[in-house]
Design a protein around this nucleic acid. Structure first.
Lengths: 337, 337
DNA sequence: AAAGCCACTGTAAACGTTTACGGAGTTAGC
DNA sequence: GCTAACTCCGTAAACGTTTACAGTGGCTTT
């Protein structure tokens, strides 16, 4: 009882060979009598197949990995919520890796692919280094990367269109008559940070406004950093009349500071976030935010991975999810329907 | 290249036996020359050990499971954030199961223990059925249950003290002069729902107030349900002057409804939640909430599990985490320091 | 110079499955 | 009644490791 029954145990009890046991358990054609004996022996013993042995033989672990920087981030959470049921329905278990945005940890996870404990991986690297690219190329199992990856990288790729997203937000704020539109960004050496930085400069000019470096402040992608960055920006440019924040957490920090300083949102300063996480509806005032389709991206990644596991070799695909602007009181005030 | 190198490949290239290769790779004493040859062969081939084969031999998967109802719930999230790094530091991978509060799914996960793909499990069952107990007793790997479990169940157990928590909140509201304290609960057939229901009745009486069934409303543990339940309660008892909500999501729903109906918080109705999730600081006004120590419970569960994996047989332990009341503007108003 | 010892290495078995192959028994065909 | 064909089953090999055991050769010891 301490060591569970195996097909050998069943075979002994049923008086047949282990091959017959395996055949019965896998539903291969067998004489009714044999099947009956095996099934009842299995039931009496409380047999459960050993998935490790099965994996060794089949060379498939039935596990897929998901690696992201920080499971506390609601964006990743939204993705997991889509991914988990899809994988589960396809018969895969989910192995979770939270890497703290540490490149070495990410490389470790990629190395893990070689250990064969997962059949594939969905990864969201915050920064893509040469090491990453080398591992992608050498990987012996399919990888889907969420976030942009250089042309020609042999992985499936799901992208948000930060550029279009930032443009939507800037146009919206400009359309509301705002002319001093600040931008509170995350680190410039991250994939989203860099993309959004370039997109902001472009969008501002496209709206016919001058690009003013003083209007841009950089912190990290968390609430407290957002608050600090916003405070610096307000001190430098007191007459700012709108703030675009590179994600919702930063925007929450911005709201904290504006409230503390007694500036009214949106009358004095309109605020918009990005990612349209659940937080946006919780904030006060509710936060206008650019949805970059977190759930859709998660779903797309899972579908790409499952698809490739089914099909085997195939040219890498790129899926781009379109952004949408969700307007709420933090920019348009209470007149919400 | 399509099929990775194994120790056999290395053995051939290095001109030694697979036993020697294994010994070198595991750091057992070997002649320097042999070690050199094996190591360089391994490096040239880009060898990565196959963890499945290793698991089969060692009978350990180096994976631990975490099963909860819904990964979107911030309480579970807070737990995972504690659990994941601890397990990782101890050399275990985390396999995630989101069961949608479906008892059959939970049983499936428990059956999975027999498949040996995890060495242990942390589980948060919303309801504990006889089937659960049977599986707990028959399990061939250690289980830690977060949430109460009957006396004598052979699993380690981490509990929140709902009773003390509810009492803290009721005393707080009573101390603020509130006399009509409503209670918005989740389903009574769940572990926390039942516990909090009993605790509310007890706490109200202990405060010297009459127990009034009209003041209690039941929904589910989500924001929208909380809003609906609150609306029903307000209609039935318009003069309620405080609301205790069985979790923060319900409390957010309550705030939504109160705002919509134009009741001021906390002047007209004081609101308190439970769990003290991140949401509490995001809400407007910031939400007074009873912390049931989600992070601590996650940490305790991980420690119990790791401990038992180290020690082997041992009497089941019960760890109870003390609640704390975190007061914020939703009960005490703006006069916050 | 024979015996014993030691350090190192190779052979083979084991972990629990799946599956190719061939043998035994049954039925059918002539 | 003999062969052919078919059904069912058992033996054994394989998946990639780890490890008990025995073997090899060189040294030391007497």
């Amino acid at each position: 009882m301490s060591d569970g029954p195996t097909i050998t145990t069943i075979a002994q009890r049923a008086g047949v060979s282990i091959a017959s046991v395996s055949r019965v358990l896998n539903g291969l054609p067998t004489k009714a009598e044999t099947e009956r004996r095996v099934m009842s022996a299995a039931r009496e013993l409380g047999y459960v197949p050993n998935s490790v042995a099965r994996s060794l033989k089949s060379r498939r672990s039935n596990q897929l990995g998901f690696a992201m920087a920080d499971i506390g981030n609601p964006v990743y959470l939204a993705m997991i919520r889509e991914i988990q049921p899809l994988l589960r329905a396809a018969g895969y278990r989910l192995v979770l890796h939270s890497t703290n945005a540490d490149a070495a940890d990410e490389i470790d996870v990629l190395r893990g692919l070689g250990e064969r404990y997962i059949d594939g991986l969905i990864m969201i690297p915050l920064r893509v280094t040469g090491e990453h690219l080398k591992m992608f190329a050498a990987a012996r199992a399919p990888i889907v990367v969420i976030g942009s990856v250089p042309e020609g990288t042999p992985v499936d790729n799901v992208r948000a269109d930060s550029r279009a997203g930032v443009r939507l937000a800037v146009e919206h704020l400009h359309g509301l008559g705002r002319r001093r539109i600040g931008f509170v960004n995350g680190p410039l050496d991250t994939v989203p940070g860099a993309a959004r930085s370039a997109a902001y400069a472009e969008a501002v000019r496209a709206a016919g406004l001058p690009y003013d470096a003083d209007l841009v402040e950089v912190g990290d992608f968390y609430r407290a950093d957002g608050a600090r960055a916003t405070a610096r920006l307000l001190e430098r440019v007191p007459d700012v009349d709108a703030l675009l924040c590179a994600n919702d957490l930063i925007a929450l920090g911005a709201l904290d500071v504006l409230r503390r300083e007694g500036r009214r949102v949106p009358q004095d300063v309109a605020v918009a976030g990005m990612d349209d996480t659940d937080l946006a509806t919780l904030a006060w005032p509710p936060l206008t935010s650019v949805s970059l389709g977190s759930a859709e991206r998660g779903r797309a990644a899972a579908e790409l991975l499952l698809d490739r596991l089914g099909e085997g070799e195939r040219a890498p695909r790129v899926v781009t999810v379109e952004p949408r602007l969700i307007t709420r009181a933090s920019t348009i005030g209470e007149e919400t329907p």
